[in-house]
Design a protein around this nucleic acid. Structure first.
Lengths: 211, 211
DNA sequence: AAAAAAATACCTGGAAACAGGTAGAAATAA
DNA sequence: TTATTTCTACCTGTTTCCAGGTATTTTTTT
């Protein structure tokens, strides 16, 4: 039955990785690769009129952040399993991806067998981690219990401008907003980061890779 | 003449990358892949009794640093061209690799054609960079001209406390100084970083690894 | 269609930061 | 032993930030 094969897509801007994944997956008889994409927007566009069961998603793409892309995918196609692919295994990033709908998190040093095993895990509705990630997630990290704040689009924008050294009135000027509005966002940011001033906020934001 | 084909080895601990590189190189008729290795020591051992013309070398291996491995390879087999493979394009890393005998530096987002072109460049005795690296190396780094500010002991101390979210009076308290003194240091810091406020300063300080 | 979240904007008052000075000890380098 | 740097401390303003609200409109979610 060629009909009920699993459809899989690859989203990664590295040709080497695309080719490598394809080669590792040719041995999996029940998986059909239906597309390879180098940008998030390309894939989202494809998803409009093609069903995809599994997507292997590089979280550091040139156009959009892995987190935003994951949300977007799950919004448009909730049944698609998103497996995040990454080079780095930071606990906070893993948690953020899961919070935004990912079904698993794989490191790029994964072996072929493990990759296929993880895909099957995901198909069976289970969260799947590659070996190294599993270890990191198993112990309840002392450090990173403080959750990463979930910022709105506007807030991210303003955070970035603050980090660039702009004052409230500067920011209001460039975004064509009232300074009072910018202040409101600024207050929300301080609250979400749970800090008292920008110095601490910028530091926290960089640590959590939000800048 | 199958004899004068180019012999090439791959050293990378990511199965995905190994497979991907192999697949991208099957089209290059004059290249024979003579080995794939996941650790530096494995490859060095192989090199003892096998000639290798080109080695694609991942610079972030689990066992040894890319720099050390490159030195070792060139010591044992000076005629082997080392092409560094990396995810990151930091100017300093590129320079270090070249200083230690590498013939080129490629980013992992390289395309198949570019990869083969770079290998041929290297075989002809020329230094080869992938596109993105070339750009970074061509212009005399914007980044590294603005010198890292030379801070005094006290300034470093206060910078750190500012980054921790402390106010001037807080800092004065913990260091047993007058708030006015702390303000003076704070002013010096802003001047040395050439910024207008702490937000920009903290960011710059973290970028320059002073925090 | 109703509810929740996000973005917009306003107000007051106090706290902190920033800009542009001066200046005297103390430590370090020449 | 000078000369220089660093650390200390002060003064006067102005600007910006922060805390504590309230409140309307728009967008998104349910």
């Amino acid at each position: 039955m060629s009909d009920n094969k699993t459809t899989l897509a690859i989203v990664d801007d590295h040709p080497i990785v695309q080719e490598g994944l394809q080669k590792l997956l040719v041995n999996a008889a029940d998986i059909t690769i239906v597309g390879c994409f180098t940008t998030g927007t390309d894939f989202v566009h494809f998803l409009k009129d093609h069903p995809v069961n599994i997507v292997l998603l590089d979280i550091s793409l040139p156009d959009v952040s892995g987190i935003d892309l994951c949300r977007e995918i799950k919004k448009r196609s909730p049944d698609t399993c998103v497996l995040a692919l990454s080079n780095h295994s930071e606990r906070s990033m893993v948690l953020q991806m899961l919070q935004n709908g990912a079904t698993g998190y794989l490191l790029k040093n994964i072996s072929g067998e493990e990759l296929i095993a993880c895909i099957n895990e995901a198909l069976n509705g289970r969260v799947s981690f590659s070996h190294a990630v599993k270890e990191i997630m198993s112990r309840p990290s002392v450090n990173e219990l403080k959750d990463v704040p979930r910022l709105t689009k506007r807030e991210k924008e303003i955070l970035q401008l603050i980090a660039d050294g702009m004052t409230t009135t500067d920011i209001a000027g460039t975004l064509h907003l009232s300074p009072l509005t910018v202040e409101t966002h600024r207050k929300s940011l301080l609250q979400k980061f749970d800090v008292k001033n920008v110095a601490a906020m910028i530091r926290a934001a960089i640590e959590q890779k939000l800048i």
